[in-house]
Design a protein around this nucleic acid. Sequence first.
DNA 1: CGCGAACTTGAATCTCCTCAAGATATGTGG
DNA 2: CCACATATCTTGAGGAGATTCAAGTTCGCG
Lengths: 254, 254
Amino acid sequence: MTQVKSISPAGCHPLQIPCEDCPIRYRAVCATCEPSELTALEGSKYYRRYEAGQVIGLAGERMDFVASVVSGVAGLSQTMEDGRTQMVGLLLPSDFLGRPGRDRSPYDVTALSELLLCCFRRRPFEGLLHSSPRVAARLLDMTLDELDAARDWLLLLGRKSAREKIASFLTILARREAVLRQSLPTGGTVVDLPLGREAMADYLGLTLETVSRQISALRREGVIALEGSRRVVIPDFHRLAAESGDDSDGGLPC
Amino acid sequence: MTQVKSISPAGCHPLQIPCEDCPIRYRAVCATCEPSELTALEGSKYYRRYEAGQVIGLAGERMDFVASVVSGVAGLSQTMEDGRTQMVGLLLPSDFLGRPGRDRSPYDVTALSELLLCCFRRRPFEGLLHSSPRVAARLLDMTLDELDAARDWLLLLGRKSAREKIASFLTILARREAVLRQSLPTGGTVVDLPLGREAMADYLGLTLETVSRQISALRREGVIALEGSRRVVIPDFHRLAAESGDDSDGGLPC
DNA sequence: CGCGAACTTGAATCTCCTCAAGATATGTGG
DNA sequence: CCACATATCTTGAGGAGATTCAAGTTCGCG
């Protein structure tokens, strides 16, 4: 519910950020665009803003645009008839939303925090995909990264204990935090949870009670500290990482 | 261990199938190739055969080729230090193996049955990917399909009961069987399991005992019948599908 | 200050896992 | 061709971890 307001003046007008000033200019699908391609995008892009909890699209509905997440967090989720829900994707700034070639999403798409999307109408974007191998290659690479992330998630859901799931999740958030601020996740990292307990449970394949209990347990043992229920302090990153069940340092140096 | 021998003469020589005769010609990454592109592939491709259980590559190792599965089944899996294993991908005929742009797989790759791969050396293939938007587009599409499949698997691992997991798995195999033989999966479908109980357990996030127990339970209740431990007969497809937890018919007509 | 939402904690239950034994295939050498 | 050895699969009993149901507690907002 609470999340970065960062970019873009408060209660604002049809906003239009020049691509050069865009915070995700070099990480999003447009990262490898040449000036000419960027001009094409610049002309057809438009922004949408959502509040935390707002539905962006339901499974099976038409989605007439694709988009990059500029700021905030979006979630993809699947729901069974009896109500069981599993989140199957977490879209952070620079991630791509939507599937070129299909005009309806098989998943529910929800804004998990205040969210700003940089949208492209489907047709023009698919045109660009055909005319510009550079963009197509970038999208393929991003999709392959997402596939790898989904596969890591399969291990988490299939084999990890509740405690390991929580530790893994916090570890990932801490890493991302560290990458953003260009520092190593070592002493006293602070992580703001972008999800409430229930959304975390949906993401981790747990119940919200189990999430709460495991977070409490980690706190009791001093692995983490809490400032309110949404802010986590990590005094010793390696201690937390060791609880995640992943091998050693998991990719980051140090 | 037992699996189709189908294509390619028995104890055979460095084999080379002309692309036009290839059983996966119109489903693999080369599906949309023009004659000229096909010629390029034809020249640089080569075949590799593996026996059931054989390791194709371990996590972190170099893989100097990418490939299409021609026949048989391959598995991608991740293993934790303490030995817990989760299969994160199941590659069936026409599926693509390997990641352009990365020369080492983050997963263990294993032949789950006798397996025939149509291999391309990495460099030439990446060249083709740059020079031929057609192939790049096809690969993007296949990757997006795999991502969707992985996301469906997240729901299975995160939220389904052991019984539902087994039913889901059998349902999927029955559908694939039906697609191959161009018929609807209705009465008396027969499915040969490409995986043993342990591999199924690794795929479904269960133990092999639980897999065995749930299969026995479905058999006792008449939802399925067994011919040996590897062959499953499905007298009423809808009854099985109803046990999977997925909504109604799950996409196929009828 | 008080209300509702979000979060925490407790107790009982249930599903799946672990450990252990037995049964059924599979294949090999005598 | 049979007997034995091995791998695979099945079944059982007991236990651990997560869920369910049910109160409490804290936090944020009007």
